[in-house]
């Protein structure tokens, strides 16, 4: 009870009280000494290349989307208005707006591209967030803190890629199969692809990369000159979505 009151004071009472709260946090920290995981993929700048040629080999395949949906408890809200999506398919002219030529090979035109958060180097969404509930990590992952998000949706207005979704209703009843290893979300917060940071920290590849049957997605560290992703980027011509905005997306596409 007394802690509750102190907590209240910490919020209401300004700097002096924040001092008390800070000391209390230290006390908790001293109790649980915490250290970095050892088994992390040691990377500095995560990125991904998606080979849409390979992707087109299996038209209609949704393995990557299914894997993500289960891994992150993505609900199926049943209508496009309330829809939540982290990874999804989009026709070429929607995925690469204003880049479409009049004459395009049929298979490019008619087959979808796989879209998700671009984990930009220069993310406009994190810039506008008024509570630092979304930010760019040192390794390039654009993170979300669902405990802190106030649901103002400024980040959704700022994202040029439509990568963010808002929980317009309680998502829990709409999740087909609950995965206890990952939290669901509350109504009223924004969410998006997290580059499977919870898997990266355990040394695993993102769920979509792992699930792809034709290995169309290559995930890796851009700062490692010997990485597979760097090799691909050196050999193949790739494009990114809306590069003219200066956001520096870190998802590269081979068309």
């Amino acid at each position: 009870m007394s802690i509750d009151r102190r907590k209240f004071l910490a919020i209401a009472g300004g700097a002096a009280a924040i001092g008390i709260a800070g000391r209390r946090t230290l006390k908790v920290l001293a109790k649980n000494v915490i250290s970095k995981p050892s088994a992390t993929l040691a990377g500095k700048r995560w990125a991904m290349v998606i080979d849409l040629k390979k992707c087109r080999e299996l038209p209609g395949c949704t393995k990557c989307i299914q894997a993500c949906d289960y891994a992150h408890n993505i609900p199926d809200m049943g209508n496009s208005k309330d829809e939540i999506k982290w990874i999804w398919k989009e026709k070429f002219n929607h995925a690469f707006v204003e880049q479409e030529n009049y004459f395009v090979p049929d298979d490019v035109k008619n087959n979808p591209a796989i879209l998700f958060c671009n984990h930009c180097d220069n993310p406009p969404c994190t810039n506008v967030c008024p509570t630092q509930a979304t930010w760019k990590r040192e390794d390039g992952v654009v993170m979300m803190d669902w405990h802190r998000c106030i649901g103002c949706r400024y980040c959704m207005a700022a994202c040029p890629y439509g990568s963010r979704s808002f929980n317009w209703r309680d998502p829990r009843p709409h999740i087909k199969q609950l995965n206890p290893d990952f939290p669901t979300r509350e109504r009223g917060v924004v969410e998006k692809c997290n580059f499977c940071e919870e898997r990266l920290s355990r040394g695993l590849l993102p769920a979509c990369v792992e699930a792809c049957p034709v290995k169309a997605m290559t995930f890796g560290n851009l700062e490692d000159p010997n990485s597979e992703i760097r090799e691909i980027l050196n050999k193949r011509f790739t494009i990114r979505r809306k590069p003219e905005l200066g956001t520096q997306p870190e998802i590269y596409y081979i068309i």
Partner: peptide, 12 residues
């Protein structure tokens, strides 16, 4: 009225 989590307003 527009906020998803109005009770977290103070986070600002």
């Amino acid at each position: 009225a527009d906020m998803g989590q109005p009770l977290r307003m103070l986070n600002m």
